[in-house]
Design a protein around this nucleic acid. Structure first.
Length: 478
RNA sequence: GCCGAGGUGACAGAGUGGCCAAUGUGACCGCCUGCAGAGCGGUUUUCCGGGAGUUCGAAUCUUCCCCUCGGCACCA
């Protein structure tokens, strides 16, 4: 079975074949750090995190590059509003972004370059474009990409026509007077005295938004990428501009073999925006929901579809997540209470079936939704086998091993697999809890239900949940 | 105006020509249980926006219509 991906460039499902054997160069556009990241960012970076992890799972040698845009007009404007130094502001929100990604279990990119750290490369790329007559400097100290030189490529990714682009948005373009052609985009922008800027052959200025991604992907990836990803809103103009620039610099086509774009996230069916007041930062949501639930929620919809966020949907995702988490806890509990024996009870078969299903689902353009659905089926079978027969320890450990294996990709169940204590430590030590359970057991033996329930309530108040199983009592901190 | 995505049970959401259309949530019933929880089994569940067509066979392909959402130079 082959991995297939949907390529925005061709608008088709294609078999995934990297340019160089098993080596995959993957670049995903990172955030502009002028504010805390919102749920839309979470959606995008979790989606690509899973794509990256799955490629590794499939045996590819992935180099994952994701930038941070730390100089940009939005940052400058925000800094003017708050009176902060723009560099200080961007550093602050870069930290916030990295914190959020860590919370959400997004693996660190192999390289995470910043714009301010790559001015030289950016200037060099612009020089090269000018040299090749694909860009032109203006007396105002700006440099534009000359789209009239690569008109054939207009609409290459957005699949829009030149006329369509001119008509539709023409009225909305601020046509800088020094532009030769309305669709030309800026590579270098002159900076006012008060704005951040770097010296360049064209005067003091700063990079335009698009050029950084070209410069950095060429430096850390290669002249041609296997996968370029980002939110669907970046298709035009950002990614299309990257194609012009990068192919202009290298003369190689395609700049990226596959273009993958994640769908939007809406809030109560509306696009998230500050003016509507339905704007949620990752930090806000993390105050209410555990990160694994947020991740589960996002993976519960295919990455290309619109996903609608609402408290109700997240709560529902939380309950669904618990089903699998409980299965894992059940397995762990069974392992602890199984002396040994090599009874398999059909678990090995279920594992290999589940593994096949997982690969089949993920191979189809990273269909995490279907992968999770199959995991539910697997969970149900495992639960049934555990309560029906008494599988031996090795078989149970294999189940746990399988969960751990696929969690390398999903990154959702780590806590449940390792059995790391969750939540607050409560007011009781393990010894105290065990003692209380023992007392409750005595009460239950004596059929003193009232006393038994009092003890259970007492523990519950401290956040400790007691569950009576047929093989004994177990507890966990919730 | 141009371009795109989509309309599947109460809700969420897979499936893209062929077993009575996954899976989860909710609700209800049953098993288990002193009770609760977790789990298991079942019901809700002849749910594919509408019409026409192609086909032995359509949620899936073609065509027309209706509706929703999004992009179009700030955007993940």
């Amino acid at each position: 079975m082959a991995l297939r991906v949907y390529n925005t460039l061709t608008r088709e499902m294609e078999e995934f074949v990297p340019l160089h054997g098993k080596k995959v160069n993957m670049y995903v556009c990172g955030p502009t750090v002028y504010d805390h990241c919102h749920l839309g960012h979470a959606r995008s970076y979790i989606s690509f995190d899973v794509i990256r992890r799955y490629l590794s799972y499939r045996g590819y040698d992935v180099r994952y590059i994701s930038n941070v845009t730390d100089v940009d007009d939005k940052i400058i404007n925000r800094a003017k509003e708050t009176g902060e130094d723009p560099f200080y502001l961007s550093a602050r929100f870069t930290r916030s972004f990295i914190e959020d990604m860590t919370s959400l279990g997004v693996k660190k990119p192999d390289v995470q370059p910043t714009v301010t750290g790559h001015i030289t490369e950016i200037v060099d790329a612009i020089k090269l474009l000018i040299l090749r007559e694909l860009a032109y400097p203006t007396p105002e100290g700006n440099v534009y990409y000359d789209l009239t030189m690569s008109k054939k490529k207009i609409g290459i990714l957005s699949h829009q026509t030149e006329e369509g682009l001119m008509e539709g948005s023409g009225a909305r373009i601020d046509v800088e007077k020094d532009k030769k052609y309305p669709l030309d985009f800026v590579l270098w922008k002159s900076s006012a005295e008060s704005e951040p800027g770097w010296d360049s052959p064209w005067g003091r200025g700063r990079p335009g938004w698009h050029i950084e991604c070209s410069a950095m992907s060429m430096k850390y990836g290669s002249e041609q990428l296997d996968i370029h990803g980002g939110g669907a809103d970046l298709i035009f103009p950002h990614h299309e501009a990257e194609i012009h620039q990068s192919e202009g610099c290298t003369g190689k086509h395609p700049f990226s073999k596959y273009w993958l774009h994640n769908g939007f996230l809406t809030i109560d069916k509306e696009k998230m925006s500050k003016s509507v007041g339905n704007f949620f930062t990752i930090k806000q949501v993390l105050e209410e929901f555990p990160p694994e639930v947020i991740r589960f929620f996002i993976l519960n919809t295919h990455y290309r579809n619109t996903i609608d966020f609402s408290r109700t949907h997240l709560e529902e995702a939380g309950r669904a997540y618990e089903r699998i988490a409980n299965t894992i806890i059940n397995v762990r509990y069974a392992i602890e209470n199984t002396p040994g024996g090599d009874t398999d009870s059909g678990l090995s078969d279920e594992i290999s079936k589940a593994r096949d299903q997982f690969t089949i689902s993920m191979d189809e353009d990273f269909n995490t939704r279907e992968a999770l659905a199959n995991l539910f089926i697997f969970s149900r079978k495992v639960n049934a086998i555990i309560s029906g027969s008494s599988p031996g320890r090795p078989a149970l450990e294999a189940v746990l091993g399988f969960f751990s294996e696929i969690d390398e990709v999903l990154g959702v169940f780590g806590k449940d697999i390792s059995g790391a204590p969750e939540g607050k430590t409560g007011g009781f030590s393990d010894e105290q809890i065990d003692a209380m359970i023992l007392k409750r057991e005595e009460a239950r033996m004596a059929k003193d239900w009232k006393r038994a329930d009092t003890i259970r309530d007492e523990l519950k108040e401290k956040g400790i949940v007691i569950e009576d199983g047929k093989e004994g009592v177990r507890w966990r901190r919730a």
